[in-house]
């Protein structure tokens, strides 16, 4: 019969229904927190509650009208922007260098670049706090960008490394034989072909910085408080729906960003 499984691992149509159900459940589990936050942000009350008893835009007003919130948002955007640029450049260079040779040394370097992702964040934060207090970098944008760059580099190294693993190195060699020095060959031949990987590394770098709380709690105080840190303090001290409003705005931004990315993607691919 055509409906019988051909191989032992092939599943029948009936079994596939269960697969659909399971995947739906997992997908729901992933998005429900986001979906809950959005109605909560339109609450008319003064506490985070679900479902909200009355609706209003007052918490959006509270966020946009507050100089402190605006200042924190600006700090986070600056920090994330600078981190993205620096971490993408350094991480791409590191991934390229590691990819050139497959020696024990280069594999060791890869491990070294992964460290910030493997060491418990709280240790990194405490270490940075003590180091920065000696250097006078606590509470400065420079300190914040340095710390976030360190945390973001592993993501760029991984993303770009993945891109390079499917890149044909003889392209780089042929470009050199045709008269391009290493740098020119990289920018005219290699980079255009791994740009999607570099771009996704950059997105990860941005998110790493923008979303970061633990290190921020230690080193981002005073006028350079980040948005994530301020949201965290707000939840701890007040629990008003401002954070829900901010979160909803961020979800909206991400959805728009993803949509733009997916619309541009097919063109970029061919």
């Amino acid at each position: 019969m055509l409906s019988d499984p051909v191989t032992p691992t092939q599943i029948t149509r009936g079994q596939r229904l269960w697969l659909y159900a399971l995947v739906t459940l997992i997908a729901l589990f992933l998005v429900v927190p986001c979906l809950l936050v959005i109605p909560m942000s339109f609450s008319g009350g003064t506490y985070l509650e679900f479902p909200p008893k009355s609706l209003s835009l007052r918490w959006y007003q509270a966020f946009l009208g507050s100089p402190e919130w605006r200042q924190a948002t600006l700090t986070s955007l600056k920090s994330a922007g600078l981190t993205t640029v620096i971490a993408t450049v350094l991480g791409t260079a590191a991934a390229w260098g590691i990819h050139q040779r497959s020696t024990v040394f280069s594999q060791g370097l890869r491990g070294l670049f992964m460290l910030p992702m493997l060491v418990p964040l709280i240790l990194v934060a405490i270490g940075l706090f003590f180091l920065f207090s000696r250097l006078g970098l606590n509470g400065t944008l420079t300190g914040l960008v340095l710390a976030h760059t360190m945390l973001a580099i592993p993501f760029v190294v991984i993303a770009v490394g993945n891109g390079l693993s499917s890149y044909d190195m003889s392209q780089h060699m042929v470009a050199q034989s045709l008269g391009a020095n290493g740098l020119v060959a990289f920018f005219t031949v290699t980079l255009p072909q791994i740009r999607i990987s570099v771009l996704s590394g950059a997105v990860f770098a941005f998110i790493t910085s923008f979303d970061e709380v633990v290190v921020g709690l230690f080193i981002a105080s005073g006028s350079n408080e980040t948005l994530a840190r301020r949201m965290f303090s707000n939840i701890r001290d007040q629990v008003d729906p401002t954070v829900a409003a901010i979160s909803s705005l961020l979800v909206g931004m991400v959805v728009i960003g993803m949509a733009v990315f997916m619309i541009l993607q097919p063109k970029a691919k061919r």
Partner: peptide, 20 residues
């Protein structure tokens, strides 16, 4: 001399044409 200053044409086994 580095490769790019040797002024020689090279054809690779897999052609290595630039797909972009």
């Amino acid at each position: 001399l580095p490769p790019h200053r040797r002024n020689l044409g090279m054809v690779f086994q897999n052609y290595a044409l630039f797909p972009h």
